[in-house]
Design a protein around this nucleic acid. Structure first.
Lengths: 201, 201
DNA sequence: TACATTTGCCTAACGGTGTTAGATTATTTA
DNA sequence: TAAATAATCTAACACCGTTAGGCAAATGTA
């Protein structure tokens, strides 16, 4: 009875097709245009079929969020592993974060609620903790004094995160601002260096 | 023919009632729950009536955005005028900005696209420029070297804005994070002081 | 092979949304 | 009082997320 597996594989394929279709619609028409019927059209089914693969629309968004965090974690991990000193790691990781936000704009919007409909319970997700712990680890290694308290790490983490998330949000929501890419990069790097320097001052 | 004016006044009143109703719904049920029919219910009319006061739903959001910027500008102006030195002004203004975001959470969400449906063309609005120019002026006065280039101001402006907007966004989207108010304030003030110090370093 | 059961997929519908057209009622003007 | 204008409503359109029920094909069983 190998047909069982083949059928399961087919089911998994259409599940993936649903996610791909959703992503495709979002990338071409934006989050507002995403509808169950459009997804169904694209995979050549009718809308109710989707509910056999996801409990509802939020289920689809949740899965896409999960995948987004996995991609982001991969990018940040690779950036980390290409440098030696904590300072270089830190800068590379945040730049990877920054790049992710713009090369996967839709994911970032979904993951961080920038100009997006809230898909409710997206806080306290395991995949998000992963990114956080990696960044937290390197932040800890930036401190010269030991031991480093959780509050110290948390504070610096939020400081980094805030300025970068802020910059990204501003640029995502207002792409017509008069900030060039060069200027943004300059602000970003200066801010990172500044925070990094401030850690042991 | 004083009735003309009375009628105009009545029209203006219902226009305000529409905005108040919209705000009331948003404050109690969130942006997702805002609908034309609910607004109409609250002002004891039917939905099509609203289209004689606003071209569409986005028109309502746009007007609320405008009013939000006016309120924010007022808060920031008052904070500025209660201090003497540029450093104190800067901190007070950004703290006013911060406070506005949380005491008028719905406005901030609308104005800065945090966890919100996009109401499209909300960039390049006159009222937004107002806030920007005020902050820019004080930033310019922080520089010891003269003259200060527009790029210098723009960069520092974005640096300030980013970290604060980022912090706010994080806290708005993830209110269940383990950051206390004290910690947020600490991060905020430290970041402001840091950026301010970095201007003449 | 014949029947019963499960599966896959669809149509139709419910209640909601923003928005528009047309009819109806009330008010003002001549 | 009659005509004209303004104010407001009802009904409808096309969309949305979601659910219920039915049809037809595939599968399991005798």
């Amino acid at each position: 009875m190998g047909s069982k597996e083949r059928i399961l594989r087919l089911k998994d394929e259409t599940r993936t097709k649903i996610l791909d279709a959703a992503l495709n619609i979002v990338q071409t028409e934006g989050w507002q245009a995403l509808s169950m019927r459009k997804i169904a059209d694209q995979i050549e089914y009718t809308a109710p079929i989707i509910y056999e693969y996801f409990s509802n629309k939020d289920g689809i968004l949740l899965e896409l969020t999960r995948r987004g965090y996995l991609m982001l974690a991969k990018d940040i991990r690779e950036a980390r592993d290409q440098h030696e000193s904590p300072e270089d790691k830190m800068e590379a990781m945040w730049i990877a974060y920054w790049n992710f936000a713009f090369t996967h704009k839709e994911f970032y919007q979904l993951m961080y609620g920038v100009d997006m409909v809230c898909c409710t319970v997206k806080n306290s997700m395991a995949e998000a903790e992963n990114v956080g712990s990696m960044l937290g680890d390197v932040i800890e290694s930036l401190f010269e004094k030991k031991p480093v308290s959780d509050d110290d790490i948390c504070m610096k983490y939020y400081t980094y995160w805030s300025i970068i998330h802020g910059l990204i949000s501003i640029n995502l929501v207002r792409p017509n601002g008069r900030t060039t890419d060069e200027l943004n990069q300059q602000i970003l790097k200066d801010a990172i260096k500044g925070i990094t320097l401030s850690i042991n001052s």
